[in-house]
């Protein structure tokens, strides 16, 4: 007779049930309500809303700027994590704590502060203006705001993994004749990549939905610097709940597909 090994947390039925109820109340039911609202439209109406030129332009802008912001943070965030893990220097703890600030700050405050800094007459923006380009009120400004808001994701996912890789492994590789680039390519990158992808995906997803900080720096010009969440607000201000939820559904589906792809990629990396 085989004996069951009892798990640490008892009661599979209980924990699964709890998980499902919790997920339903917090995630699934609100999302389902959105689909129900949007489903009151016929397919043709729905299609007309989500393929309107303004919506397509906003879709490209929202996903594009979020992608750039996630990529920037992918590089800079890894660098930050590296510096914080591998070096000790005075003030390291303070900088480490500062990484989380973009999460704690109300996004509107961040948006207003960034706008004031980066307008053509602002403290930093004036130098850009001298060089002949604008930061605030352009897609560049949106990317900047998103980079700020999503900064902690990559740092915080890469940091613990990096801390777990003993320095000795790198030294061993070097002893065996690996050049610095090879150490990075064959030792560090494979170990970091899954965590990095998670951070990247989180940053990207957060960036797509961000409203508060972007709205002040975007300029909100139709077809040019109008983000998708703003179009949702515009529809809501016309009391057009169905139109608003249609765009919500569009965002959700596109995000879901992209996140699924990232997840698949991650699985392929983890199981070579």
């Amino acid at each position: 007779m085989s004996r069951k090994i009892s798990p640490v947390i008892p009661g599979f039925g209980l924990t699964l049930g709890y998980t499902l109820v919790y997920l339903s109340l917090i995630v699934l039911i609100p999302l389902a309500a959105m689909f129900v609202h949007a489903a009151q439209l016929t397919w043709d109406q729905f299609w007309a809303i989500i393929t309107a030129p303004r919506v397509i332009a906003a879709l490209k802008l929202s996903f594009g700027t979020a992608l750039y912001a996630a990529l920037i943070n992918g590089v800079i965030g890894t660098l930050l994590a590296w510096v914080l893990v591998r070096y000790t220097f005075p003030g390291r703890k303070v900088i480490d704590a500062m990484i989380d600030l973009p999460f704690a700050l109300p996004t509107a405050v961040a948006g207003i502060a960034l706008t004031a800094l980066y307008t053509p007459t602002g403290l930093v923006g004036q130098f850009a203006a001298d060089l002949g380009f604008k930061i605030a009120y352009t897609p560049l400004g949106i990317t900047l705001a998103l980079t700020f808001v999503t900064l902690p994701f990559v740092v915080r996912t890469v940091q613990p993994v990096l801390a777990d890789i003993p320095r000795e492994i790198e030294e061993a590789a070097a002893c065996l004749g690996a050049k610095p680039f090879q150490v990075f390519r064959y030792i560090l990158a494979p170990a970091l990549l899954p965590a990095w992808l998670t951070g990247f995906a989180l940053a990207f997803a957060r960036g797509v939905g961000e409203y508060g900080s972007v709205i002040f720096i975007a300029g909100n010009m139709p077809m040019k610097t109008e983000i998708l969440p703003l179009l949702i607000m515009v529809k809501l201000d016309q009391y057009d709940y169905r139109g608003a939820t249609s765009i919500g559904v569009l965002m959700l589906v596109v995000s879901f597909i992209l996140l699924l792809l990232i997840n698949l990629l991650q699985r392929r990396i983890e199981k070579p």
């Binding site: 706008t115 004031a116 307008t119 007459t121 602002g122 709205i215 300029g219 010009m221």
Partner: peptide
Amino acid sequence: VPILDTGARGSTITFVNNGQ
């Protein structure tokens, strides 16, 4: 019009504080 804020106060900030 180079910037369309979402509310009247937003526009006032853009004009008065940000000098646009």
